[in-house]
Simulated assay, not measured.
Amino acid sequence: MNGSSRENINSVSYFILMGFPSSPEMQFLFFGLFSVAYILTLMGNTAIACAVRCDQRLHTPMYIFLGNFSLLEICYVTTTVPNMLANFLSTSKVISFVSCFAQFYFFFSLGCDEGLYLCIMASDRYLAICRPLHYPRIMTRQLCTGLVIFGWSSGFILFVTPVVLISQLPYCGPNVINHFICDPVPLMMLSCSKDTTTQFTYSTFNVIFMIGTFLFILCSYALVILAVLRMPSAAGKRKAFSTCASHLAVVFLFYGSIMVMYVSPGSRQPVEVQKIVTLFYSVITPLCNPLIYSLRNKEMKAALRKTFGTETAHKL
């Protein structure tokens, strides 16, 4: 299809994000609840990033990756939550075609980056616990910097193809998305044509990326747990298990929800279930991550006390 014919077919210049249809009173209630969740998410993840930045004791690869992961979470929630909050107070709930696909691109690119960072952190723990004598030689400053750059950039590169393919589908109406974000599944359903090639490409990308990274993380931590069980020191076991438990909790929170939604997009879940699951990994998980990492980590709590004062850290 050439450019001019596509313009004739694609008559949609904006979409309407229905969000959570309800009474005006409930919309204000949702606005308040999600505003508080968003502010707490920003505060928690900013606190971790600042603690890692300011405390010299945390200038190690594990905490550098954790600090970048927290910054990634801030960017991740900011791609969707401010627009969702604005829609709670809006009657039109309109988002332009370009803005919709921009949100789609940044949200899912940052989601890919989160998965890659979880892989990087799993690899770091594997090297530190299973190969402790070789760890300083392998995890050099140069490799750490390279992994940080790789973790931030790869998602933006990988997700160009799915976004371009879906944006090139013809859209001639309707333009109402029964969701609170520009999600690829309802976007493909709104297309005038059933492009099986695009759907297959998107589904294959999700399956390979999500299952591949998830299995990599599980294998890494399985080897870590086996190594921990062979440790002679009880204190060493407790510290290693505490760190791994925090990481695995975040892994299962993140992957448990996204696999329900995106590994098999052909199996249509009810719309309300899709919204709840999306809400879980886009809002709830980033809110919980700072608590998970700070509550189970003595070094992080000490750094937070040093950076923000004793009173603030004790509240965590």
Rank of each mutant, 00 (worst) to 15 (best):
T213Q: 13
A245R: 09
P286E: 05
A47C: 03
S22M: 12
T285I: 15
T204V: 01
A234D: 14
G3S: 15
Y135R: 05
F31T: 11
Y14G: 13
R238N: 08
M1S: 07
H134T: 15
E73Q: 12
S4Y: 04
V185H: 09
V207M: 11
R53F: 10
C192S: 15
E25I: 12
F254I: 05
T307S: 10
L66H: 12
I157N: 11
F308M: 04
F200P: 08
A47I: 00
V207N: 09
L248G: 03
K275G: 09
F97R: 13
F159W: 14
C288N: 13
F254A: 10
G19H: 01
Q168N: 15
P265T: 03
G309W: 05
A49V: 02
I157M: 14
W152D: 06
V263P: 02
L253A: 13
A302G: 08
V163Y: 03
F101C: 05
L127M: 10
P265N: 01
R53P: 02
R268Q: 06
L169I: 05
G173F: 04
I149C: 11
V98P: 03
L304N: 06
A227I: 02
V277I: 04
V260M: 12
H134P: 10
L71C: 07
N87M: 01
E272M: 10
H247Q: 07
L223G: 10
I292L: 08
V52C: 14
N206I: 06
Y126K: 15
Y281T: 03
